[in-house]
């Protein structure tokens, strides 16, 4: 197997130029997919036979919750790469993805609370799924705070990576919480082994919205990482050339 791509993507200069090429496509894809998925879900999908129109919150809630968990798994993955190979780019990715993950968790929790009121009669219950998602938010906030509290860059990278790796134990707890404990929360909407329990007109826009959220995450992550790389690498020839170009474009 050819591993050169691994080292290439670990180079800040290479990543900066490649991400610049991907960024406009990610932005276009996320605008299109989010637009189609959300409008389809809001206006064209049929109402649920039990929940009526309140079920339409699913098109915000499920993509945000899925993405919040995927970003955490990515944090743990970049944490392991950073701890083993000491790749600086892994730390940049971890630290820049954490705030986006925290915001996605906030969207999942708030949209879930709003959905809970007409469906369960309460905004919040101390149920296994809701509590484990709240713990996910605290893990994100812990990683962000730890990164800001440690001034030494290498120590901060190691601390954040360790916390990300240890905290990943919460992800299977979130996933299986609806099976292990009695819960008000409904089971998973999508699975690898079964057809969705919804008609196509309901799950197809959900799938499109999920893809839109992932593209959105990719675009925001790339934008954040590119700025952070310019900051960290300023002084190197490629970064100073890029900064000079950006400053010249402004005048």
């Amino acid at each position: 197997m050819n591993w050169t791509w691994f080292y290439k993507w670990g180079s800040p200069k290479w990543f900066y130029s490649m991400s610049g090429k991907f960024l406009p496509w990610l932005v276009t894809a996320s605008v299109l997919l989010l637009g189609i998925g959300l409008i389809w879900g809001l206006a064209f999908a049929p109402p649920d036979y039990q929940q009526g129109n309140s079920f339409r919150i699913i098109y915000i809630h499920v993509p945000a919750a899925l993405l919040a968990q995927s970003i955490y798994i990515m944090l743990a993955g970049t944490g392991i790469i950073g701890l083993i190979w000491k790749i600086k780019l892994a730390d940049v990715a971890l630290r820049q993805a954490a705030p986006i993950g925290a915001w996605m968790t906030v969207i999942a929790l708030t949209s879930g609370a709003i959905w809970g009121k007409p469906t369960w009669g309460a905004y919040w219950v101390w149920d296994a799924r809701l509590t484990s998602m709240l713990i996910l938010l605290f893990l994100y906030l812990g990683i962000i705070a730890l990164g800001q509290a440690i001034t030494n860059r290498d120590s901060a990278a190691r601390g954040c990576a360790l916390l990300a790796v240890v905290g990943v134990v919460n992800i299977p707890i979130i996933k299986y919480s609806v099976e292990w404990w009695n819960t008000l929360h409904q089971p998973a909407s999508f699975s690898y082994s079964h057809q969705p329990a919804m008609p196509t007109q309901m799950w197809l826009p959900l799938l499109i919205a999920v893809l839109g959220f992932y593209c959105f995450f990719g675009a925001v992550l790339f934008a954040r990482m590119r700025l952070e790389l310019l900051r960290r690498e300023s002084g190197s020839r490629w970064a100073d050339a890029e900064i000079a170009r950006l400053l010249k474009d402004r005048i």
Binding site: L38, I57, I60, H61, I107, I114, A219
Partner: peptide
């Protein structure tokens, strides 16, 4: 939205506002 308008629109409004914030901050 069949009496669910306040819930649906506030969930979408808040969700999209937070997404916009994430896009604008960087």
């Amino acid at each position: 939205m069949g009496n669910h308008g306040a819930y649906v629109w506030s969930a979408y409004g808040l969700g999209l506002a937070l997404m916009a914030l994430n896009a604008i901050l960087p």
